[in-house]
Design a protein around this nucleic acid. Structure first.
Lengths: 202, 202
DNA sequence: GGAAGCTATGAATGATGGTTCACTTCTTTC
DNA sequence: GAAAGAAGTGAACCATCATTCATAGCTTCC
């Protein structure tokens, strides 16, 4: 036994892997999945193309990891916001606002997560991601119904609609260059979301 | 001048072209853009791969034509439904129902038009397609506002939300194997759409 | 019927881009 | 410091398709 990984070496490898994921994420954010070749990602990380395969068994595996990290972050944030104190209606409004604001602030990533053409493997992850988003929204809608704040409805459909609506608004340059129009867009989006769930008009 | 296209020959060519487009459409409907290779499409049309280039200058040109035909049909149908007699609210309900029903009845095509990974050229067409869909919905929403049937709102956002919502519900197998669940889904979708636009509860 | 021009063919071509692998470089251990 | 083993390299490899092109097969016209 002439060689054993030392803790320092292990953490160096781990760091290299993380660095690679970060680089890949930024490449995807900037140019999308379809343009993110192994070479481009490796260049961005400052390593050779072949070295990518020290950390991932295939390009698809790296892509899935990149997607999971970013998507996981978003789901987590939304989940936290939706579970903060407040009535279901208030939480729904806040959730939509945060979802949309984060997406608008990082459009490239939002587009990559929600809509950009990608490997089938990433496509499958995307379905799962949307499903989780929907489940979070649906839960709050159901609470609203139970508390009598929202009318009876299929919460899953409302939740799907909210996800689809925010996505749709983002993907197409419907707006929001500057601060002002972004704010207006968010206000309108939240209003739309509350109507969609059937919240009483304020 | 020893040769000139005779009318019969011209219409034979035209028919061959149409046949190719139809075959390509069905391939795309069944397996999606990414799997629709020139060879697969040509096989489906019963011609050689090279012959595709007698009718289209590139695969992308054929893809765009396929998209335009299918998308154009859908936009046309929606436009007609939305301009039938009735209040804006009634027309909105009917429009969403028709949009969703058609999509559910031909899921493969709907998916190809709305969401499936595709060439950049098709992606650009898709943006335009969604824009037209939105414009149609937005027009009716604006009429509803003017007639005092809908509350003041950003009609573009509501229209985008409706498009996104229907698309989202379709893409994921949220439901609708049989007749019964399809009907229920449509009812819920329409109800959601009316809430979304702020129509008074029925 | 046959010359001229067009369409159809499908194997060859070429570009792209993921993956491999013989080799180099760095780490560990003694 | 030297042997052993791991990580890093990047040029070569390979698979996948879109596209081309020399050739064969039809149509037209006289």
């Amino acid at each position: 036994m002439a060689y054993r990984k030392t803790p320092a070496e292990i953490s160096r490898l781990e760091a290299a892997r993380e660095h690679l994921i970060a680089a890949a994420t930024s490449v995807v954010t900037e140019v999308g999945w379809s343009q993110a070749s192994v070479t481009a990602v490796a260049d961005s990380a400052g390593i050779a193309a072949g070295s990518v395969y020290q950390h991932f068994s295939s390009k698809a595996a790296l892509a899935v990891e990149v997607f999971r990290r970013a998507a996981g972050r978003e789901v987590e944030v939304l989940g936290e916001v939706l579970h903060e104190p407040g009535t279901p209606v208030e939480r729904l409004a806040r959730g939509v606002e945060v979802f949309a604001r984060r997406a608008l602030e990082n459009r490239g990533l939002a587009y990559a997560l929600l809509a950009a053409p990608a490997d089938p493997a990433v496509g499958a992850e995307r379905l799962e991601f949307r499903r989780r988003y929907r489940a979070l929204f649906a839960e709050v809608v159901h609470e609203g119904i139970e508390e009598g704040l929202l009318p009876a409805q299929n919460g899953e459909i409302t939740a799907a609609a909210l996800t689809g609506a925010v996505g749709e608004v983002l993907v197409d340059p419907l707006g929001a260059r500057d601060e002002e129009t972004t704010g207006a867009l968010l206000t309108e989006l939240v209003a739309m979301a509350l109507r969609c769930a059937g919240a009483p008009r304020s």
